[in-house]
Design a protein around this nucleic acid. Structure first.
Lengths: 174, 174
DNA sequence: TGATATTAATAACATTTGATATTATCTCAG
DNA sequence: CTGAGATAATATCAAATGTTATTAATATCA
């Protein structure tokens, strides 16, 4: 298997190992990765609505509800009804959580340093630049014409147990 | 947020976008990513046992069972009891599936080309080298001493609904 | 050699995630 | 105004994933 073709495999491994390492560290704070992500964004944009936060962090609104439920009951944040739009809830971090965010960044920095060990600074620059370009490339792509025009009721439709995808979803940019 | 600190976020995005793009393509073959991964490995190592395949592809044995169940019922492969060890089942691709593997590689190549668009070949080389080094770095790490020695029955133990991790897992190398 | 521990596969159960429906509120075109 | 959509949050339900238990077959070693 040539080097190029191994890319997908390496990307998967790196992504999983990196997440795992960070989560192991975050477990000490009794936090999960999605919770950390939410906290970090909230620290940057105090008083965000759930809908906006879901969009920014790229999670389903329903998933965010659950993340926030837990963090609220743990006393990290509170939901305040938006006076201008009573459907919306603005999320505010409690003082206690603001220190947490600093901790989170420390863990993130630590994890990154472990990952980058022995890689020259300049090479790291190239790496990030490349990944950023790839992200843009992939984000720009058109939805890939699903040639599902003929035979509308083709053989077997759904079923599940292929272990995973069946639905799709498009996404916003930052 | 400086460039270094954005690394985790970019990595996550790239990984997800890349997987999503590939899965969209694979959907045309009625295959999921885990199925594709299993097929590719099986094509390289005909007659592998499930346990070994699970190890190679880094999925839980139970998860693999389900992936194979589906693919077997779709007629892509068959399980043969190992004559030397009657507990084990060796997986053999059926002729029909071998063509599939070529298709899968085509999709993978296509996806990679889309991702790498506008990135000079040399830079791609550096990218892959960097990621490979990171993978090694992360794989080498010791399990991160969980300082869970004092207060064995501390405040609240499990609970769930943090949206995700609570358990861990170690892994083999290739 | 035979009792005990291990391993491969899988069944049974629990948790989590994703999809859709629901409720309250808001926005406008008319 | 007013009523036909949107939109925000969330409840409810279904699919999928992870965990632990089970069964059969080996391996180990006292």
């Amino acid at each position: 298997m040539n080097s190029l073709r191994s890319f997908g495999f390496i990307l998967r491994d790196v992504s999983r190992l990196y997440v795992r390492r960070f989560e192991q560290r975050a477990a000490a704070l009794d936090l999960t990765l999605p919770q950390c992500r939410a906290l970090v964004y909230l620290a940057l944009h105090e008083g965000l609505s759930q809908a906006r936060l879901a969009e920014l962090t790229d999670v389903e609104p329903m998933t965010l509800v659950r993340i926030l439920d837990r963090m609220q009951s743990d006393g990290w944040l509170e939901r305040r009804i938006d006076v201008a739009d009573r459907r919306a809830r603005n999320i505010h971090l409690k003082a206690k959580a603001k220190h947490l965010v600093d901790e989170i960044w420390k863990l993130a920095d630590l994890t990154r340093e472990e990952a980058f060990r022995a890689i020259p600074r300049k090479q790291v620059g190239v790496l990030i630049k490349s990944l950023d370009q790839i992200r843009n490339n992939l984000a720009m792509l058109e939805p890939l014409a699903t040639s599902a025009s003929p035979s509308p009721s083709s053989s077997r439709a759904g079923r599940g147990t292929g272990t995973r995808p069946r639905r799709e979803r498009s996404r916003a940019q930052s």
